[in-house]
Design a protein around this nucleic acid. Sequence first.
DNA 1: TTTT
DNA 2: TTTT
Lengths: 154, 154, 154, 154
Amino acid sequence: MSVNKVILVGNLGKDPELRYTPTGTAVCNFSIATTERFKDRDGQQQTKTEWHNIVVWRQLAEICGKYLHKGKQVYIEGKIQTRSYEDRDGNKRYITEIVADEMRMLGGRNDEGYQRPAAPAQPQQPQAQSSAQQQPASGGFQEPGYNTDDDIPF
Amino acid sequence: MSVNKVILVGNLGKDPELRYTPTGTAVCNFSIATTERFKDRDGQQQTKTEWHNIVVWRQLAEICGKYLHKGKQVYIEGKIQTRSYEDRDGNKRYITEIVADEMRMLGGRNDEGYQRPAAPAQPQQPQAQSSAQQQPASGGFQEPGYNTDDDIPF
Amino acid sequence: MSVNKVILVGNLGKDPELRYTPTGTAVCNFSIATTERFKDRDGQQQTKTEWHNIVVWRQLAEICGKYLHKGKQVYIEGKIQTRSYEDRDGNKRYITEIVADEMRMLGGRNDEGYQRPAAPAQPQQPQAQSSAQQQPASGGFQEPGYNTDDDIPF
Amino acid sequence: MSVNKVILVGNLGKDPELRYTPTGTAVCNFSIATTERFKDRDGQQQTKTEWHNIVVWRQLAEICGKYLHKGKQVYIEGKIQTRSYEDRDGNKRYITEIVADEMRMLGGRNDEGYQRPAAPAQPQQPQAQSSAQQQPASGGFQEPGYNTDDDIPF
DNA sequence: TTTT
DNA sequence: TTTT
């Protein structure tokens, strides 16, 4: 009966890396920066940047690998996870990551991240597939559609 | 590319109501109170209670109907939704509800909500089905199990 | 001992309205849309838009009134509040609003919302006031600056 | 224009440690466990426990040091922060912590964590200081009290 | 190190 | 009333 939830809005420091496990599961890694503004004791404006390692699995990994890029602003929702591993000297090390289960691309089509090179091979953020119609505020009680979330990026 | 998320921790004002749509879908309704403490202009401690209408669908509805009761403290995660309906005079009215997709029972087994009557017919909060073993911090990279979430209450 | 928290990312439907109470307190009202995508029973992509009434007080109200505009994408954090009022027929009505205590403008400077007229008098989203220096990951224990939050918009 | 937010509900593994910096600022450290349930490939129920290092500053540190204890269930809201330090071998190490700015004690007065010894010297979770009156849903527009948050634990 |  |  516990809760482990992280909500981040930040920008990717590099392009994401999409890989596959031996069993073929997609996993995408990238890091995003969040920057905090505060005043130091002298009343000077300062900023402090925090870098977050993001891990995404399965279908969302494919979407992240395909549509995200360096500089892109994203909303991430996930959980904190600390893994241990052995470094080259055989010492146990720990790394804390955010395992994301929700991702939303922020900013519009005119806002693809300021550091983005004008590379022609770069994927375009696609038009959202035309939504049949704006669903009106329905009269009264309504059973919601069951969002399987399993085949559309956005 | 938007986010609509609500996180509440509060206590049920009454026992939940579990119903079924004509097509057999379970839906559970209950309300929870959140109380805020603040000081008024005179420096007097005041409290202000907000009531939230919660709607839960499908399997989580069954769980809520079965295990929640008046006074129980819960964590709720969901989204805000405003529906319209017609009142008895034919006027359009709006009601804002929280459609929950996560629920956690809070407090332990000694803490079933202070207003709870010692009714013998009341369901007991069951022991969590013994977890086979405490999973150790695994060495390195690990593909997570896929939580289908579809048959265990907690 | 309760929690009442809302997190929204959406776009303003109109320019915000900034007003002042008789005692001179700033209050800003605007609404933002969040749009959900789902599939109906026929497997058709549908969208459903939810409108949220946002209320902001004091200094953050001034910032919202000054820098937000129709179409702008924002992150909002706040609490749910339902107020009652009497309609013109003397009937008690309820309205649910989000009282915001955090706001972040999303998208970059090239992304001011596409319907924005190129009005010269319109305020520009200012350059973030140059942050003196990128604070390095400091060595060890560090007492944070106390962010009073009271005089800088971003 | 970023967001770095963590929301946790879990139980303290040990009593909190309250200390003071050389300049007299209170800082409280404790760790909380969150446990996730999932099924492995064999359909076996498993659990995985994550430990989170919590850091709290100033007045909230004093409250945590005074009222929290081993086993207590808490709601924590804060931000992720990674600090670096040198280990005894002069190697740079990183530790990720949650810097909390909100804490709510969960469970009622009958739910102090089941391993708690009946030590008479242990602080009691105080009765919430009687709230003068339940503030009614006020008629219409209302300016909120300004919650300075600076002298009351709950 | 907690809790279920 | 926005945005995609």
